[in-house]
């Protein structure tokens, strides 16, 4: 009976129920570990799980309540990620006005999504901001360090505003051609697959990790974590096929693509942190670090997933 109640739910709420189940499971495992190994310190794990509850509640809550609210949340996510990145940059006093423009680009990019203007959404940052930002920097009449500033700021905009905003455009996509899915369900699929892949790679790595995969970039990442995490995520994603218009094989391929992109994003952001000489991007999320430490893989996974879906299912 409870199973039939579950299948009668809309895909979005079915995902909500699954999410709740996963979180309860994570909390239960934390408690069991504490009982089994009372001497070990699990405060980091507890903080992480508690933060996952909060993040899931805020994100799923916004998506379930309204796509407008979720869009505002995503815009804030981009804004905060950009803040974390720019604060670590070695900016020059002459960059001030260019940076004002940079942060102005965040609400504008999300405004194109708000009104559903795909053509503008997809060229605004790569074309217009790319052309205007250096001109604005030039107007400060300081050439020393110009190339570094212009390229570093544009890179941040591409990753944290343009890249992440694909989550937002997914959200406002209409039902797919076959009518089986819509943007909201696809967004939940993408975010869940990307994040669970991060978690599973971490767990596999912690448990079986031997051979380092990128020792000079992220010393904690191992081949065992990478392969185990991605394989498990692909299996799980097939169970979430009800959110998508994909066939079983296609789901596996899309999940593989998404998780590989996510791994790339995580590795790139690790290299950025290494370069800046910091461990975390900030302290917003207890146990996780900054906002960027959590959305790093999404910056890469979102555009890849989005364009696949848009090309083949719209």
């Amino acid at each position: 009976m409870s199973l039939s109640a579950f299948t009668e739910l809309s895909p979005v709420w079915r995902m909500g129920a699954i999410l709740l189940g996963v979180l309860v499971l994570a909390s239960a495992i934390t408690v069991i570990l504490r009982v089994l190994q009372p001497k070990r310190n699990f405060s980091e794990l507890s903080a992480r799980v508690a933060s996952w509850w909060a993040m899931a509640a805020v994100f799923f809550g916004a998506v379930a309540v309204s796509d407008r609210l979720a869009l505002v949340l995503l815009a804030f996510l981009s804004f905060w990620a950009m803040k974390e990145y720019v604060t670590l940059l070695k900016t020059r006093p002459a960059d001030h006005s260019g940076l004002v423009l940079t942060f102005l680009a965040v609400p504008i990019q999300y405004y194109w999504i708000w009104i559903g203007w795909y053509g503008m959404f997809v060229i605004f940052i790569p074309v217009y901001v790319f052309l205007i930002l250096p001109v604005r920097l030039v107007l400060s009449r300081e050439t020393a360090g110009f190339v570094a500033s212009a390229s570093q700021i544009q890179w941040g905009l591409m990753a944290f505003v343009f890249g992440l905003s694909h989550l937002g455009f997914l959200l406002v996509m209409p039902p797919t051609l076959d009518g089986e899915s819509n943007g909201r369900a696809l967004l939940l699929f993408l975010v869940f697959v990307t994040e669970i892949s991060d978690v599973l790679q971490y767990i596999w790595g912690k448990t079986f990790g031997r051979r380092k995969i990128l020792p000079s970039v992220s010393p904690d990442k191992t081949w065992e974590g990478f392969l185990g995490g991605i394989a498990t995520t692909v299996l799980i994603s097939i169970g979430l096929r009800f959110l998508t218009p994909f066939t079983v094989a296609e789901t596996a391929i899309v999940a593989l693509m998404t998780t590989l992109a996510g791994f790339g994003g995580g590795a790139v952001m690790s290299a950025v942190k290494r370069d800046f000489g910091v461990k975390d991007f900030g302290g917003l999320i207890p146990g996780h670090g900054g906002m960027l430490d959590r959305v790093d893989s999404l910056c890469y996974a979102a555009p890849i997933f989005f364009h696949y879906v848009r090309y083949f299912h719209y």
């Binding site: 720019v86 604060t87 001030h96 004002v100 942060f103």
Partner: peptide, 18 residues
């Protein structure tokens, strides 16, 4: 820390550095 980066002397609009 960083206040002078966010809103330096002579600037009108703050940049949201932490």
């Amino acid at each position: 820390v960083n206040m002078g980066r966010s809103l330096p002397k002579g600037a009108l609009i703050p940049v949201p550095f932490f």
